[in-house]
Amino acid sequence: MSPTEIHQRLQDQHDDAITAFEADALDPFVLVKSDSIVEVCQFLHNDPDLAFDCLTNMSGVDFLKEEYIQVVLHLYSYTHRHAIVVKVNMSREEPSMPSVETIWKAANWLEREIYDLLGVVFTGHSDLRRLLMPEDWVGHPLRKDFIEPEEYHGISTRRESLLK
């Protein structure tokens, strides 16, 4: 199925959940409302003509100037060999969206990573802990306005330039 057909199919079923569709982008994407992401993903996964059985990639992007955080899901179907990108926008102050872990197990760690690095809270996640950073780390390093702390447990994070 082409991305336009996939969008049409989604539109028929979940009209009010889809806020935008960009067919001319390099990877065509649909923009989905955050609170209906689970139903949309469930449909994408279960519908026999769509059968998106694999979540190949999931990333978080912090748009500082536009004041929102975007979570990007790259879906792929091994059955039909087609792909679609699903994007979800949320506020920068309290970014949160429902977890899709129940649909694709791969989302477990991918969501933990996004929580760790961007501070997006995935509601309903079974084990939402930091993944890459230490547990007591303050802040989310991939936020565009993140300022690295001067030290961590007495270890300086600064180093003088060797060229001086």
Binding site: N57, M58, S59, V61, D62, K105, A106, N108, W109, L142
Partner: peptide
């Protein structure tokens, strides 16, 4: 680049 994300094979292998 505004944002780069690398999803690697070992990452998903570790999660299982």
């Amino acid at each position: 680049p505004y944002r780069t994300k690398i999803r690697t094979g070992s990452f998903s292998a570790m999660s299982i």
